[in-house]
């Protein structure tokens, strides 16, 4: 009886010691785990699913061949492509649009692409003032 009471009180004291230890550690020694966000930025991991990017080949030509597999595989159906042919009778995307407000960042589009034209970057600050701002056209997706 007495032994169990002492054990319980000891456990309570251990709890107090633990919180005090963390208090001293944070106050004197270390840095809190909080990230002071706008000043300090988080660096995403290499495989982070952020904003998409359309790639160019070494000659500066768009890699995309407008096969529309990305649009077909997209579960959220947020990719809209219009196709056209250029002077060499090659297919290309005359308009390529991703509605980022509907995108679920699953990365299937990247996996589906047969020519590796699409990539997901680490960009995660995607807030916009308007809904129209969430529609990324080809120029914005081809950015450097």
């Amino acid at each position: 009886m007495i032994g169990s009471i002492i054990k319980h009180i000891w456990a309570l004291l251990c709890g107090l010691r633990e919180t005090l230890w963390y208090f001293l550690k944070t106050t004197i020694l270390g840095k809190p785990i909080t990230l002071m966000y706008p000043e300090e930025k988080w660096t995403p991991y290499p495989r982070f699913h952020g904003l998409h990017k359309l790639l160019r080949d070494d000659n500066g030509k768009e890699k995309c061949v407008a096969c529309c597999l990305c649009a077909a595989v997209c579960p959220a159906q947020c990719i809209t492509i219009e196709t056209a042919e250029n002077e060499n009778n090659e297919k290309y995307a005359s308009s390529y649009q991703i509605d980022i407000s509907r995108c679920i960042f699953c990365g299937y589009c990247v996996e589906a692409c047969p020519v590796g034209a699409l990539l997901m970057t680490g960009e995660y600050e995607l807030a916009e003032y308007t809904r129209e701002g969430m529609l990324y056209n080809k120029e914005r997706l081809l950015r450097e």
Binding site: T19, L20, Y22, F23, K25, T26, T27, P32, I33, T34, M36
Partner: peptide, 13 residues
């Protein structure tokens, strides 16, 4: 502040 530091946070900053 104290609660924050005990939970390894900053508290009001």
């Amino acid at each position: 502040k104290v609660l924050g530091h005990m939970q390894v946070r900053y508290g009001p900053m």
